[in-house]
């Protein structure tokens, strides 16, 4: 999907308990970087946009350190899977499934995202 640059009124929405929760304008997201959003129940989500414009969202809390920082990590592609590397101890998490690529026993929540 390619979007025209002046689509500022487009919003990013997150699937939460069967409902769509509006997070921010699409234009606030830099390709290749993330932002954090506060969810109604106090949890945090990290939302990313890749260079093609695809969106991803996972839990913001780094399970290895407990800090809420995954949104501040660097993103990339590993064997076709989009991932973010935690900025603290560098473990990578698959952005679509939330699975940790460096330790298959660890996984963070992944959220569905859409543009509306």
């Amino acid at each position: 999907m390619t979007l025209a640059p002046e689509t500022t009124d487009l919003k990013i929405e997150l699937a939460l308990d069967g409902d769509w929760f509006t997070v921010c304008d699409l234009s606030t997201l830099l390709p290749g970087r993330g932002v954090a959003a506060l969810l109604p129940d106090g949890r945090q989500a990290a939302i990313f946009r890749d260079r093609c414009g695809d969106l991803f969202a996972i839990d913001n809390r780094d399970p290895f350190t407990g800090a809420a920082v995954l949104s501040r990590g660097l993103t990339g592609t590993h064997r076709g899977r989009p991932f973010v590397a935690s900025p603290l101890l560098k473990q990578r998490f698959d952005l679509t499934s939330g699975e940790c690529l460096d330790d298959e026993t660890v996984r963070v929540t992944a959220y569905q995202v859409r543009i509306a």
Binding site: L30, G32, R33, A67, V69, R72, L74, P87, L88
Partner: peptide, 20 residues
């Protein structure tokens, strides 16, 4: 684009500590 290449420290021009 340079903003998206920087490690978190460079991106926020400060050093990330263990609690964020």
């Amino acid at each position: 684009e340079q903003a998206s290449l920087q490690d978190t420290n460079d991106h926020f021009l400060a050093n990330l500590q263990k609690n964020g």
